[in-house]
Design a protein around this nucleic acid. Structure first.
Lengths: 144, 144
DNA sequence: TTTATTTAGGATAAATTTGTCCGAAATAAG
DNA sequence: CTTATTTCGGACAAATTTATCCTAAATAAA
């Protein structure tokens, strides 16, 4: 469903959010450990999330990643997925046709659009805040 | 969403089904042309679909691919996707966790399972017959 | 039987995704 | 200022997916 990059990016962002809600900044190393993702690859993903403005990064000792607390509720799962995998997941024909829309549909068009709209709506309605809160209170987990 | 292999496989199977409903066998070359897919790669996919028993193949002149007409309604989109991409699309955690279920969920577990179940049900409820019929009567298309 | 045609299948290559390594740049603290 | 720490960013490598090519095997028809 999601790419590995996206999986790591989502996990990392949720972890950073939890820490940010406790006014803590976290290092790449800690994130990769807690989220069970390859360090160097995770670094690349965090870089691009920082460029997208979803997370903040700081160099040097005491440096690391964080998310402005007031943004955590406004950031949606959709934003993270979109920043990493791009909108190509939400656009385009399910069978790869260039020319496919309601007036000239591919055989799976209607059914496919239905599923994908569900996905899109789910991602747009899911806030980083609720994901981070669930993790913080021990309702969910990210390891293994 | 689907792999390229799956896209080509679905398109090819629908095209073969349409022809089979008119008692015609089709060659790899014709399929690849009509479905706008790379010939050699399509050959591989059709090979595996034949091994899975979803389509029949015949060598030699007048050879080609076909689907037993009485099977066309029983074959579901799910069977095609499952034969090519495997069940890994329908199983496993949305964030790639090994240990993730209702009792120890990842942060997106519930929402993700909901979407994926929708997808699975849609694929299981969509018959090759309806897809092929739509194409046959010109309601849908596979080119471009 | 010979020939032409078509799929089967192995080897290989190209493209993309995933992942690593390392020096540069920033920066906090002694 | 120096040093230690941390992210940045480029080059590179491995793995997977996508795609090609060619020979073998089957088989229909002359």
């Amino acid at each position: 469903m999601f790419s590995k990059a996206c999986e790591y990016g989502i996990k990392a962002t949720i972890y950073i959010a939890v820490k940010s809600m406790h006014q803590e900044r976290v290092s790449l190393k800690e994130i990769a450990e807690e989220v069970n993702s390859p360090v160097a690859f995770t670094a690349k993903i965090l870089q691009s999330l920082a460029k997208s403005g979803i997370i903040d990064s700081h160099k040097g000792p005491t440096g690391g990643f964080q998310i402005e607390e007031s943004n955590i509720d406004a950031i949606k799962l959709y934003d993270i997925v979109n920043a990493i995998d791009g909108e190509k997941i939400f656009v385009g024909c399910g069978l790869g046709l260039e020319q496919c829309d309601a007036s000239q549909p591919c055989p799976v068009h209607d059914k496919f659009v239905g599923i994908r709209d569900n996905l899109k709506i789910m991602l747009q309605n899911t806030s980083l805040y609720e994901l981070a809160t669930g993790l913080d209170i021990g309702l969910t987990h990210l390891k293994r």
